[in-house]
């Protein structure tokens, strides 16, 4: 699924400039614990989260997460946006709860980032 389609499904707004909307997203995960995000680490994944602190971007950088969607219209602070810009990780704000957004994306055919037993 392309990032463009995801943004349409969650009615999101892109918070960082220069985003490649045709980027292919392989799977999605809804998570608020950064260690959990690091555990499912897969390239080209989409993270839906209720956290907006800079560590979310750091975690995405370490785990090669392709893009981050913030739930319930939460807006990250300037530090978070600056770090995302520096690392080239698109940030998207969307109005719905994590439950609603996971549901919508699942209905739209998005795959889940399933946990591997082996790291990778």
């Amino acid at each position: 699924m392309k990032l463009r389609d995801i943004i349409r499904v969650v009615e999101g707004k892109v918070l960082t400039e220069g985003v490649n909307l045709d980027m292919e997203i392989s799977c999605a995960a809804g998570a608020d614990l950064m260690s959990d995000v690091l555990a499912f680490a897969k390239p080209n994944a989409l993270l839906l989260t209720g956290l907006v602190n800079p560590q979310v971007v750091r975690t995405a950088e370490m785990a090669d997460i392709a893009a981050i969607v913030f739930v319930r219209g939460k807006m990250p602070g300037p530090e978070t946006i600056a770090l995302a810009r520096e690392k080239g990780i698109p940030l998207i704000a969307a109005p719905y709860t994590m439950f609603e957004m996971c549901g919508r994306l699942y209905e739209a055919g998005m795959a889940s980032c399933d946990l591997d037993t082996k790291q990778g």
Partner: peptide
């Protein structure tokens, strides 16, 4: 509440 300290770090 910042998303850390859930006891999964060392396991990771």
């Amino acid at each position: 509440e910042l998303g850390f300290g859930a006891g999964m770090g060392l396991a990771n």
